[in-house]
C-alpha cells in the first residue's frame, strides 16, 4: 500500500535552530531517506519552504481567488512529506516513528487512495 507521511512541526522550532543544529538535522533526514531507499520503502519526498512562502488559491463562481498564506493557520505546520510503499499500517507507522521530525513534531500517516 502507498502511504504519505506528512511531517508537521512548529516552524519556530526550525528557525530557532543554530546553523550547526540545522546541519545535524539535514544529516538526520539524509540518513533516514537513505535508509528507506535501501529498504525499498521510499517512493518520494521533499521538504517544504516555510508557510510564509505559501499562497492559497480558490476558484469561486469560476473566478480564481488568490490569497497570501497557508490554507489553515495551525499551531504546527506542514514542513515536508514522504511517499512510501509499506505492507500495512503497522509497517508505515513504524517507518513514521523513524522520521526525524516525529521526535519534536508529529507525523500524520495517510493511506493514498487506490484508483
Amino acid at each position: 500500500m502507498k502511504y504519505i507521511l506528512l511531517i508537521y512541526s512548529k516552524e519556530s522550532d526550525w528557525t530557532g535552530l543554530s546553523d550547526k543544529d540545522k546541519v545535524d538535522m539535514y544529516q538526520k533526514y539524509m540518513a533516514f531517506t537513505d535508509s528507506i531507499k535501501k529498504s525499498g520503502h521510499y517512493l518520494g519526498g521533499d521538504g517544504l519552504e516555510p508557510t510564509a512562502t505559501a499562497t492559497t488559491v480558490r476558484v469561486r463562481n469560476g473566478k480564481p481567488v488568490t490569497t497570501d498564506g497557508p490554507f489553515a493557520e495551525t499551531r504546527e505546520q506542514l514542513g515536508g512529506y514522504y511517499m512510501i510503499d509499506a505492507k500495512d499500517l503497522d509497517e508505515a507507522a513504524e517507518i513514521a516513528t523513524r522520521v526525524p521530525g516525529a521526535s519534536y513534531g508529529a507525523v500524520e500517516v495517510r493511506p493514498v487512495m487506490r484508483m
Binding site: M1, Y3, A86, K87, D88, L89, D90, A92, V109, P111
Partner: peptide, 14 residues
C-alpha cells in the same frame, strides 16, 4: 480497510 490495519498478531517488540 482503507488505512491498511493489518490482520495479525503484532511483532514481538510491539
Amino acid at each position: 480497510r482503507q488505512a491498511g490495519i493489518p490482520y495479525r498478531v503484532p511483532s514481538d517488540e510491539r
